[in-house]
């Protein structure tokens, strides 16, 4: 049903991809390396694809594009080890609650 071929192009698609964490004013995803087993389930499901697997086995993923976080919590939902990932809202979005009157 499918066939693959390498395209010959004089443009030569031999570019090297580069990537480095993009700075943001926020840290939406915080890993606890004590609890993280480095399974990369979070990176697997993140629909914004902001989490990149660590090069080091067993280490937590890298939050490569923190500003692109949609704050859905899918990463926390699939994490096998509760507490390994914390989702933190930007300070300005922490709604206030008070004791009932």
């Amino acid at each position: 049903m499918s066939n693959q071929k390498k395209v010959d192009s004089k443009e030569a698609f031999n570019l090297e991809y580069t990537v480095s964490p993009v700075a943001s004013s926020v840290n939406p995803i915080i890993y606890n390396q004590e609890l993280c087993i480095g399974c990369n389930r979070c990176a697997q499901v993140c629909q914004c694809d902001i989490l990149f697997p660590s090069k080091e086995k067993g280490r937590h993923p890298i939050v490569m594009y923190p500003g692109e976080c949609y704050y859905c919590g899918a990463c926390v939902m699939v994490c096998p080890n509760p507490g390994a990932i914390t989702l933190k809202h930007p300070l300005m979005n922490r709604a206030k609650f008070v004791p009932v009157k």
Binding site: S2, N3, Q4, K6, N14, L15, E16, V19, P53, K55
Partner: peptide
């Protein structure tokens, strides 16, 4: 972390093409 510390973790398949057929 600087550029030299982290390499793109997935395969580079730019220029690869796949044809998929379905109903």
């Amino acid at each position: 972390m600087n550029r030299s510390e982290y390499k793109w973790p997935y395969a580079n398949e730019s220029g690869m093409e796949e044809m998929v057929q379905s109903d």
